[in-house]
Nucleic acid binder design. Structure first.
Lengths: 160, 160
DNA sequence: AAAATTACGTCAATAGCGCTGACATATTTT
DNA sequence: AAAATATGTCAGCGCTATTGACGTAATTTT
């Protein structure tokens, strides 16, 4: 029965069993991270499309608001992207009046970045739905639990 | 002194104070999520470039391994992308021998997706460094803490 | 003072991954 | 027979990232 055999051979290479518990890998939490992060960024994404901006603009406006006076090099270090990637996004935010550059007082090659009031407002508007989502996820949680989650997230980061 | 005044006016629009504690928004955890997720996906990304694949391939190969026999529609629902987005990625995985399609036994319009052994191996290889990272982040944590983190991540998801 | 380095900007080309819109085919349902 | 469904495909586009190369101004080193 060559026909049957070849069918079996073909079928034999297909795996019908769900991947789980393989080598003590927790696939569930891997998926939870994927879904959680996807929905977490979906809130600001919806707001950003209205302004013609994207996720990259969000990141820039966020960190400049968090640390006004940071330099372009600081920002590249924080975001871990290339200056060519940053260039367009930063230019658009400056042209749109959300961020301004000031030559460094000591080192005038540097461009210190500051938010305008519009930039601050935008950063807050983007953070708000994310914050609400986080509060909802923490609903009923103790301070200890919040601390545990933060410790976990810190532990997920690559150490530099 | 019009010159001085215009200088002051320009400066007045720049905010030098770091954005923090505004309206009880926890900016720290927002950043922790960003950094944690970025580093979390960096592990598989490094492996994937060697095969000429990307993050989208990872997701497809992951979920097909988690639920062998899922249809294209199931996958689109899970990933929440369009079929056009999925098409190229899925085709490449099929052409490369990581995934196979089988016509649905009841509804022959359906294409049930199964991993090959190579597909299973790839999914495991990609999950492994992520799992190690998660274990490191949980190092010393109790079962209760792990459960709390999972509950938090579940709470971050948009309810359907 | 000249040379090297640094901080930043920019031009050009490319890749990955998502999107919309339109159309085609096979199959199942009505 | 007609309508709906599941899937595939073509074409074009947008956003974000990449590498490589080059330019300019300012600072540091020699």
């Amino acid at each position: 029965m060559p026909r049957q055999m070849s069918q079996n051979a073909a079928k034999a290479e297909l795996l019908a069993t769900p991947m789980q518990n393989a080598g003590s890998i927790d696939f569930e939490i891997i998926e939870l991270l994927f879904f959680a992060y996807r929905d977490f960024v979906s809130d600001p994404d919806q707001i950003l499309v209205k302004s013609g901006f994207g996720r990259a603009h969000h990141r820039v406006v966020h960190f400049v608001n968090r640390e006004p006076g940071m330099t372009v090099a600081d920002l590249l270090e924080t975001l871990q992207i290339t200056k060519q990637s940053l260039a367009r996004v930063l230019k658009q935010l400056i042209d749109s009046g959300y961020i301004r550059q000031v030559a460094g007082p000591e080192d005038r090659r540097q461009r210190k970045l500051y938010p305008t009031q519009a930039g601050r407002d935008l950063a807050l508007a983007l953070a708000e739905p994310q914050s609400r989502r986080i509060e909802r996820a923490f609903e009923g949680a103790s301070e200890a639990t919040r601390a545990s989650v933060k410790r976990f997230l810190r532990g997920m980061q690559t150490e530099k």
